[in-house]
Amino acid sequence: MADGPKPSSSVKLVLLGEAAVGKSSLVLRFVNNDFQENKEPTIGAAFLTQKCNLPTRTIKFEIWDTAGQERFASLAPMYYRNAQAALVVYDLTKPTSLVKAKHWVAELQRQASPGIVIALVGNKLDLTSDGEGVRSGGDGSGDADVAEGEESGDARKVTTLEAQSYAQEESLLFFETSAKTGYNVTEVFTAIANAIPETSLKTTRGSNQAQGRTGDEQQRVNLNANSAGAKDGCAC
């Protein structure tokens, strides 16, 4: 299904979130389909690209994977400026990382381009009891089971319900993923690709220029939409 004369466009996407929540691992899973245990922290930021094939068009993601440490925070505006999409990542096993994620969401809503598509992603699902099913079954439905997980061996500290309701309030896409198993990773990016309004995709090299997208907010695709185009051919 690959190369038709479909329109192709670039989307600048930035990853934000506390240190060690798995931003780089998500990107590496998406770009290289690879995973490394004990990955060293990102220094500064990494720039990667990956294509995502939608039925009607091809999206080329230009991904800025930023370092999560506090001392790099002042550089973040450089990366989210003119970004059309942002992935704000937290660690399901670490409540403070969700707090940090909320700060990032607020900053993005305040300072990034108005039409930016934001996805809230809870990573490390493999460490939770939901993750058990994910590992064995291959495709569990992560959003089905809400909010408990007091079973033994469950490291989950942030319930799905809590994060999901916050995402709903703020009109964010919401996913729980595991970069380790690959669960839901492509779906995040595909959903973002689908959520990017066509109107903002005029240029093929769009990452640098600010693109007037005021008034796009209404088009922002709704929330808990991890069914949205999950099975679309994001060929990554």
């Binding site: 690959a2 669960y183 994001c234």
Partner: peptide, 16 residues
């Protein structure tokens, strides 16, 4: 190149 390979099933041990 627009020839993006078909979606590869995720496997945690996929060697790169």
């Amino acid at each position: 190149s627009d020839a993006v390979p078909e979606a590869i099933p995720f496997s945690p041990t996929h060697p790169t």
